[in-house]
Design a protein around this nucleic acid. Structure first.
Lengths: 137, 137
DNA sequence: ATCTATGCAAAGCTTTTGCAATCGT
DNA sequence: ACGATTGCAAAAGCTTTGCATAGAT
């Protein structure tokens, strides 16, 4: 997938990957930037973006591109789907096995050659459900 | 869904809705703008955006928010999924019936209350497949 | 007459890019 | 030493917003 596999394992790249691997919260680039900054105060947001692109190309991470205005990143490379909270934006992994492509659609594909799918559930996360009970509306 | 259902049926709103209804190509705001401009040369892109938001609130259209950088709009209000061409960005309706939420996931939802899902298939559209045969790579 | 909607331009937000300096190999 | 990578700032791409004017009811 990467055109040029040559890479230099810079401190920035290392820390960005390490911190993303610690999280299961699928941070946005800006979110991860704030976390990485705690270890590398001088890092720039552009470096975080560039490394996330590079690490995706190299197959270390996955760019999620779910709904919402910001892309999210995931170091969990196994095929899995996500649930996104419509209130707070939080994204969690779905424990359940991914759907079977073949079963989902019985009809024809209109001439398309299918290569992948993107499935995202929308819901209200436990914390936001709790909050709703106290302050409805 | 609309906070304030009061509305004025302006020429712009009418034409924007009419043109979107003619299409099954799920245009972006900019794409629809180009089409609407043929009938209303002085219309502004901001008006198209504002009306698409308003028409979504009023339930006349649906904002798709699939992958990709631009939002797409659909006047087909029936529950249906989409296929997006990874080469040219074209979005088509899936004829097949939508998947059944309950069947897709057997396991627990991690405390989430599920309200909706978003399913998008990625593939290569007929035209791009054709092109590939001539100029592979 | 009232008050929403429009057109224009400017601003906002996320992401990308140009450039000189830095650092990994 | 070579050239990929960085930090900074500027730019780019999509969408929203402020404001004065036009227009629907």
């Amino acid at each position: 997938m990467a055109e040029n596999p040559i890479q230099r394992w810079t401190r920035q790249r290392e820390v960005i990957l390490e911190e993303l691997r610690k999280l299961n919260s699928h941070p946005t680039a800006a979110g991860l930037y704030q976390i990485v900054r705690r270890r590398l105060p001088k890092v720039s947001l552009a470096t975080v973006y560039r490394n996330l692109v590079r690490l995706s190309e190299l197959g270390y991470v996955r760019k999620l591109d779910l709904g919402g205005s910001e892309a999210r990143f995931d170091a969990n490379l196994e095929r899995h789907d996500h649930v996104r909270c419509v209130r707070c934006g939080r994204v969690d992994d779905l424990r359940s096995p991914p759907i079977e492509l073949g079963r989902a659609v019985q009809d024809d594909w209109g001439g398309y050659e299918i290569v992948d799918y993107r499935l995202e559930f929308l819901g209200v996360c436990p914390r936001c459900r709790q909050r709703t009970k106290r302050e409805p509306g």
